[in-house]
Design a protein around this nucleic acid. Structure first.
Lengths: 227, 227
DNA sequence: TGAAACCGGAGGACCTATCTCCGCTTAATC
DNA sequence: GATTAAGCGGAGATAGGTCCTCCGGTTTCA
């Protein structure tokens, strides 16, 4: 889980331990406070000096990458599982439910996917990979007549967004509240929910722009030094 | 609409004109960029120097208050209209639809209601007024058997939140996209939508905390000078 | 036991936002 | 038209925050 590449020569024991602590602290801090938490905060939570943090990770960006690489890979895994679902409708629900479950309570991951700081290519790559997989899922469900007329893949993305917006709270409960709100929404996607939705769906470009428009802060999360 | 209190002696004509321009510019800027847009931005959009802005409004807080007082009053008006609706279910839809319509495309108003900067009492007062009115609406609808079993007023607030989170875009279209997403959600609230929702609703205190937790920035919008 | 690796955290460099100040301009009044 | 009080612009002072560096002292490991 937290192994380092064997190509580099191993760290001293205390250094290795501190690295582990930093990653654990970063996971907590970014999950709670979002991407613009400072490395000072992370270091403090890890019980370690800032200097140590910057010795292990050249900058905030590098820490984010180390931390979120595998979490983004989880999103890919979810899509694969959804595509392999026995029934089309189950695939849709799998995608929605597991994506929300993964991002609920991890504000950092949400912000990473929704308004990616420039300079994190692995996020852009992931977004580019994920889009077509969702399209596929939607087409399959429509062919089976399982989806409400007129529902497009941007509608599914918006569904994730809507529920995620409200998913911050109460992760510690036995039944996290977002499941309640998800239950509220998901029925509207089913074929038997009623006629076609009003208006036109967002085009991929529009959906993307909406994502990037983001919340306060407008996308500027990393303000690197450099020239 | 933009009249000043007659208790103060009137401004010079150019000053009055600039005040009007500043408010108009502020409405645009805060609607687009949210509450942490700067007064410099507002002044620039108004075609006026920053000095003029700070001469007319002692600080950002005062400008926000002048700007949003009436918009908050609109929320009260919506609640009254919803309470007076011929049928209970219509009341619910009125509340949801009109609130979303008002806040969609006005990011400033949304942030104001969702993570009010400390020191704007009129917002807290409004929030305190609005809560019981929503409760009333829900009770009435339940008595009439119009609402899905177990739906509480916090669920309605969350519905507004969910759709609002996605309402930023495309206000200029004939049919703004949020209506599409609203259509997706609203069916889940009806009595015929299915059994009770899973889990427990958020308590008022929990809902309030979720609101205040807010997005990046955590509530610190005004950073006053002073001692 | 010695040296290489590592540590903490004060503080430097830089940025951004709020608000002030003052020489000049404009509107209102006589 | 002249007088004067009110208003104007916008550079920059001030405060506060973030990212990252630096170096004297400590710890690990051979």
């Amino acid at each position: 889980m937290t192994e380092n590449a064997p190509t580099e020569k191993p760290l001293r024991r205390d250094a290795e331990e501190n690295r582990r602590r930093l990653l654990a602290a970063a996971a907590e801090v970014f999950a709670e406070a979002g991407l613009d938490a400072t490395l000072d905060e992370v270091a403090a939570r890890a019980g370690v000096g800032v200097g140590t943090a910057y010795r292990r990770f050249a900058n905030k960006e590098e820490l984010l990458e180390a931390l979120f690489r595998e979490r983004v890979a989880d999103l890919d895994a979810i899509m694969d599982r959804a595509a392999a679902a026995a029934e089309p409708w189950l695939g849709i629900v799998t995608y929605l439910e597991e994506t929300i479950a993964l991002t609920a309570g991890d504000r950092g991951l949400r912000e990473l996917m929704l308004r990616p700081p420039q300079g994190l290519e692995f996020v852009d790559e992931a977004r580019a990979r994920l889009g077509p997989k969702i399209d596929e899922l939607v087409e399959r469900a429509h062919r089976a007549g399982a989806l409400r007329a007129g529902v497009e893949s941007s509608d599914l993305v918006m569904t994730v967004l809507m529920v995620s917006a409200v998913a911050d709270y109460g992760q510690d409960r036995a039944e996290p509240p977002w499941r309640r709100f998800f239950a509220l929404v998901v029925g509207g996607l089913r074929a038997d929910a009623g006629g076609a939705l009003p208006g036109a769906a967002l085009s991929p470009a529009e959906a993307d722009e909406l994502l990037r428009a983001g919340r306060p802060g407008g996308g500027r999360v990393l303000r690197r030094r450099g020239p």
